[in-house]
Design a binder for these strands. Structure first.
Length: 588
RNA sequence: GGGAGCGUAGCUCAAUUGGCAGAGCAAUGGACUCUUAAUCCAUAGGUUGAAGGUUCGAUUCCUUCCGCUCUCACCA
C-alpha cells in the first residue's frame, strides 16, 4: 500500500487554527488506519451501477412485506455520507449522490469483522461504495441492507452544520409540513436543556403528525422536514465563506444547488429556442484590439508574441454583425463580457450575455421573439409563468406593454407633454430637481436633449417597471449603433426590456449605413478626447464590413445573470454566479 | 471611490452598564444491531478579524488596518 501523502502528514495550511489542524490530523490518522486494514483511503475503480433516485423510484410504492419477500437487488451506489447514526455493531448512514440520497443499513453480522472495521473509521463527509438489497426500515424508510461496504475517499475537513435528506412533496403538502415544522421548532426552541428538548421535540412531532394523519405522505415527511429545518439553521450562512468556498456552500445549503441547476436549464432552453429558429451559435473573440460594442471601461491585457495591447471584450456586437455581413444571417453567442467597473448586487465584472442577430427582422420582430422566449423560459425554469421575486409576483404572460420613452416619462411627470421634449431647458430644469450632488448638477448642465430624456427616464420611470415592459424610441445620442427611426431622426428603432425596475434586454434595428456609422464613431472618439471614459474606439474594419453591405438586421442583448436572478428569486448577482469576483484574501 | 453595518470555538449563535468568554451541533473516549436532530455517560475545543490606545480591568469604548454585506456613484 502506498503511504499517505509525501511526508505522511496532511498538507500544512498557514492560516488555520490549532483546532482545525487537530481535526484534520484525527481524520488523517483514520486514513492511515484504513491503509493498515488494507483499504486505500483514496482508492479507485469501483463504479456504482445505480443512482439513489432510481432505487427510490423503483420501490416507491412497495410495502415492507413485498420488499422483504423479493429482496430486490443487489444495487450498488456510491456517494458522500451526509449523516451517520451509529449503534456500535450496526448503523444507519445516508449516502448522497448527484440525484438524491438513500439510507444504508450496515450490520456487523452481515458484513463480517473485516468489512465492518472500515465502517468504524467513517467520518461525516467521506465517500463510500455500498452494495446491498432494498428493504423498508421499521420507520418505513427505503433502505439498502449493505452486503458490501467499501470506503472510497477519506475527507480531512469537516463539513459545516448538519445534513438532511430531501423529501419530495407537492406544494400543498409542503405548506402543511412547513406549518407543522414551525410548530415543532417553536415548541422545542423554548426549552433549554438538551435532553428535555429532545423529549419535547418528539412529543410535538408526534402531535403534529397526528394532525396530518389524513395525509400519510405529509405525516411521514414531517420528521425529515424538522431535520431539514434544523440542518438549514446549521448550514453555512457566512456570505463571504459561501462565495469563497462555493463547494461547501453547494453541499451545505440545498437551495444553492437548485439555483445553479435552474441557471443551466435557462441557458439550455435559450439555446434550443434559438436553434429551433434557425439561429447558429458562434464564438467570437474575447480579446479585442479595440474597445467596441458598448459604453464601458475595459480590462487591459497584453499579448507577448505580438507585443500588442489587448482589451477583454465589453461586448461581442461588432463581430457578430460582421458575421451577418458574411452571410450568417441568424447568429447568437452566449458568453462572458468583461467590464472594468464597480461591483454591486447587480454587477459582476465578468457577466454572461446572450447576443443574437436576425437579418430582415426589425426591433418589432425582436419584441415578439423576446416575449415568446422569456415567457416560455419562465415556465421551463420555474414551472410557472408567474414568478415570485422578493415581495412581488412577476407576470411573464405574453402581451407586454410597449411604450415610447417620452410617453413613459410624460405619464409620470405631469407638467411635461410629449411636445416639451424639444425644449432642452425645460427638461434640464426637471432633471435638476432630482439631482443631489454638485457633480450630478454639473453633468446635467451640459446635457443635450437626448441625454436629458434618458436621464429623466432613469429618474422617474425605470424603478417603477415591475412587470416586463418594453420601452421604445431611445434618443439617438446614447444609441451609437442603432438605426435612426424613419419617422423621427432624433430617436432610434430601439427598445429595452425592463423588469423589477431593471434593464433585462437591449435591442435595436441595426445601423447598416456605413456613412452614418462612421460619423457616430467619430463622435465617440471626440467624446473620448474630451475625457469621457466609457466610449467606443473607431473600428475601421467594421466600417469596411458595412461597406460590403449588411442586410437590414435587428439585434439584441440579454443579461443572462440578471434574468437568472429573476427566475431564482436571487437578490444578488453573486447568488447566480458560481464563483463571483471577490477581493483576494490576504489573511484569514 | 463615498456612506452605513458586521467580524466571538470547525458550523450556527449567546455574553446585562466595561467585571470569571458560554450553549447547541460537529469532534474525541466509552455504551448501544431499526435510527430519522438517534439516545446515554465522559472529555477536549478560544490570540473574541489584526495592530495600537483609554482603563485596575476591553468581546464591549476610541484610532488605524484587513475582509465581507448593504447602499450611492460608474454601469448591464
Amino acid at each position: 500500500m502506498r503511504p499517505l501523502g509525501g511526508s505522511g502528514k496532511p498538507p500544512a495550511m498557514s492560516d488555520e487554527s490549532d483546532v482545525e489542524k487537530k481535526l484534520r490530523e484525527e481524520r488523517h490518522q483514520k486514513g492511515v488506519k484504513l491503509a493498515e486494514l488494507g483499504v486505500n483511503p483514496y482508492g479507485t475503480g469501483l463504479r456504482p451501477e445505480h443512482l439513489t433516485a432510481e432505487i427510490h423510484a423503483r420501490h416507491e410504492h412497495d410495502t415492507p412485506e413485498a420488499l422483504e419477500a423479493a429482496k430486490p437487488g443487489p444495487y450498488s451506489i456510491a456517494g458522500r455520507v451526509v449523516s451517520v447514526r451509529d449503534f456500535g455493531k450496526a448503523g444507519f448512514i445516508m449516502v448522497q449522490d448527484r440525484a438524491g440520497a438513500l439510507q444504508v443499513h450496515v450490520k456487523k453480522d452481515v458484513l463480517g469483522d473485516q468489512a465492518f472495521a472500515p465502517y468504524k473509521l467513517l467520518d461525516l463527509g467521506d465517500f463510500v461504495f455500498v452494495r446491498g438489497t432494498a428493504f423498508r426500515s421499521k420507520t418505513g424508510e427505503l433502505t439498502l441492507a449493505a452486503t458490501e461496504y467499501r470506503p472510497l475517499t477519506k475527507t480531512l475537513r469537516p463539513l459545516p452544520g448538519k445534513f438532511s435528506a430531501e423529501v419530495k412533496l407537492s406544494p400543498e403538502q409542503a405548506e402543511r409540513v412547513k406549518a407543522a415544522v414551525a410548530a415543532v421548532n417553536a415548541a422545542t426552541s423554548a426549552v433549554e436543556d438538551a435532553a428535555a428538548r429532545h423529549q419535547v421535540s418528539e412529543e410535538t412531532i408526534a402531535a403534529q403528525q397526528a394532525l396530518l394523519k389524513d395525509d400519510p405522505v405529509a405525516a411521514k415527511a414531517l420528521p425529515h422536514a424538522v431535520a431539514k429545518a434544523w440542518a438549514e439553521k446549521q448550514a453555512l450562512h457566512d456570505t463571504e465563506e459561501r462565495y469563497r468556498r462555493r463547494y461547501v456552500d453547494l453541499l451545505s445549503n440545498p437551495g444553492v444547488k437548485e439555483t445553479f441547476i435552474k441557471r443551466t436549464k435557462l441557458v439550455q432552453f435559450i439555446r434550443s429556442f434559438l436553434d429551433a429558429r434557425g439561429y447558429l451559435e458562434v464564438e467570437t473573440p474575447m480579446m479585442h484590439p479595440l474597445v467596441s460594442g458598448a459604453a464601458a471601461r475595459p480590462f487591459k491585457t497584453h499579448h507577448n508574441a505580438y507585443d500588442v495591447p489587448l482589451f477583454m471584450r465589453i461586448a461581442p456586437e461588432l463581430y457578430l454583425k460582421r458575421l451577418v455581413v458574411g452571410g450568417f444571417d441568424r447568429v447568437y453567442e452566449i458568453n462572458r463580457n468583461f467590464r472594468n467597473e464597480g461591483v454591486s448586487t447587480r454587477h459582476n465584472p465578468e457577466f454572461t450575455m446572450l447576443e443574437f442577430y436576425e437579418a430582415y427582422a426589425t426591433y418589432h420582430d425582436l419584441m415578439d421573439l423576446t416575449e415568446e422566449m422569456i415567457s416560455a423560459a419562465a415556465v421551463h425554469v420555474t414551472g410557472s409563468v408567474k414568478v415570485k421575486y422578493g415581495d412581488h409576483l412577476i407576470d411573464f404572460s405574453k402581451g407586454w406593454p410597449r411604450i415610447p420613452m417620452r410617453q413613459a416619462i410624460a405619464e409620470r411627470v405631469k407638467e411635461l407633454t410629449e411636445k416639451d421634449f424639444g425644449d432642452v431647458e425645460r427638461l434640464r430644469a426637471i432633471a435638476l430637481r432630482k439631482a443631489e450632488s454638485p457633480a450630478d448638477k454639473a453633468a446635467i448642465a451640459t446635457m443635450n436633449v437626448g441625454e436629458l430624456t434618458a436621464l429623466l427616464f432613469e429618474q422617474y420611470v425605470e424603478h417603477e417597471l415591475i412587470n416586463p415592459t418594453f420601452i421604445t424610441e431611445f434618443p439617438v445620442e446614447n444609441s451609437p449603433l442603432a438605426r435612426r427611426s424613419d419617422a423621427n431622426p432624433a430617436v432610434t428603432d430601439r427598445f429595452e426590456l425592463f423588469c423589477m425596475g431593471r434593464e433585462i434586454a437591449n435591442a435595436f434595428s441595426e445601423l447598416n449605413d456605413p456613412v452614418d456609422q462612421e460619423q457616430r464613431f467619430r463622435s465617440q472618439v471626440d467624446a473620448k478626447a474630451r475625457g469621457q471614459q466609457e466610449t467606443m474606439d473607431y473600428d475601421a474594419d467594421y466600417i469596411r464590413a458595412l461597406e460590403h453591405g449588411m442586410p437590414p438586421t435587428a439585434g439584441e442583448g440579454i443579461g443572462i445573470d440578471r434574468l437568472c436572478m429573476l427566475f431564482t428569486d436571487a437578490q444578488s448577482i453573486r447568488d447566480v454566479i458560481l464563483f463571483p469576483l471577490l477581493r483576494p484574501q490576504t489573511s484569514k
